[in-house]
Nucleic acid binder design. Structure first.
Lengths: 216, 216
DNA sequence: ACGTGTGAAGTCTTTCACAGCG
DNA sequence: CGCTGTGAAAGACTTCACACGT
């Protein structure tokens, strides 16, 4: 038996984009799609799509392309998004509130079941039918409900402590909105979303090209 | 003269993280930092930091490390974040409101000066001292004020149309919160932020390892 | 003839490892 | 001696291009 090869992270990050495009095509009533068409819809290339999918199996038919419902199902299966997830949100400040109120998560299988905060003024308030609870009660709840996904929406100064608590309680996937680098054990995944860093990376490209070139 | 070499995008995306860590160190009163220490603070490696910085010049001193104020200034200069940017936000729904109300942009030099929407019920309302205006008046304003940075916070179905309008008006950098792939001319940069895709990528890793390996 | 799946090639990115400077 | 800057090597990812199945 040959050694199994693990799949590049960058491939995993593209799968949700493929799934999104396939969902739109399914809704539009299409039956099949070629790698070329899917590339056009996702901003990728045909070769990349074929390569990406080939990590997981053979989903297409030569001369025909991919059956949309079948491929979509396969990708959803690979990403484990056919399952429904309970998600805790830590931080009920403006950002946490916006996240808790955003309807988009629920319709994609992520149930924002609990919002936690530290601040007594926020505890007991309600966001989208969810009551903000004291963060002190969080570990017990996470363990009892076996929550594996969390969203951190606290200030940077509190983020590491929150992450430690989450990890200790059994959380394995963290979506981190705090502008902080989190140190977690290697079996826990962190995905950072920081709009300020994003904008700062974007403004680099606003300079006239010459200054963006390496000295020689 | 040798041909200049352009800098990898992935390097540019790391610079804001370095800047953030250096700012914290500066506030903490440190004078110098080694690539090793900076690596620890940013979740990178010493070699990578040295290589990344070497694209832009020689900022360190052997045996000593990097002078924090000097390096921070250099990075801010590379990213063009010493400048202040006017930013338009398109979409005054829940997401646009949260973005407009989030204070973090302004303190990093991004001035969310205008919020636009399509919906008459939202036009005229106020978010953080900013009045929501009719998107029909947006192109003129962008051109007049030479706005180059925009944030898209509209539903996916409207995102491409908004992007087209922005680009036509002269915007060169777009932070896209809509779950849609935007097609823009090659002199315009798009940075996508999609929390649902992020969560979907994260849940991949929740499966027991065996199913995450390539068939052989 | 069309379009997949994939070796092989090419390109990009990271890491190693060390000369050389302070 | 400590630490940078960087050739060279290794590794990761993308693209090419084509054999093969439909």
């Amino acid at each position: 038996m040959e050694p199994d090869i693990s799949i590049p992270d960058v491939v995993i990050k593209r799968l949700p984009i493929y799934a999104r495009a396939l969902t739109a095509m399914l809704d539009a009533g299409s039956e099949t799609v070629s790698s070329k068409e899917l590339a056009l819809a996702t901003g990728s290339t045909a070769a990349q799509i074929r390569r990406d999918l080939s990590y997981f199996g053979e989903f297409g038919k030569q001369g025909k392309g991919y059956n949309i419902p079948h491929l979509l199902d396969a990708i959803r299966d690979i990403l484990n998004i056919n399952e429904r997830y309970r998600v805790v949100v830590v931080g009920a400040g403006p950002l946490g509130q916006a996240i808790a109120r955003y309807g988009g998560f629920s319709e994609h299988g992520f149930q924002l079941s609990w919002v936690y905060d530290h601040n007594p003024e926020r505890i007991g308030t309600t966001l989208n039918d969810v009551v903000v609870e004291d963060v002190a009660t969080m570990p017990e709840r996470i363990r009892a409900m076996q929550v594996r996904v969390a969203i951190i929406a606290v200030p940077a100064s509190a983020a590491q402590e929150v992450a430690d608590t989450l990890v200790e309680s059994g959380v394995k996937a963290i979506l981190n909105y705090a502008p902080a680098v989190l140190r977690v054990s290697s079996d826990v995944r962190v995905y950072d979303i920081d709009p300020v860093s994003a904008l700062q990376a974007l403004t680099y490209y606003l300079a006239p090209a010459p200054s963006r070139l390496r000295r020689t």
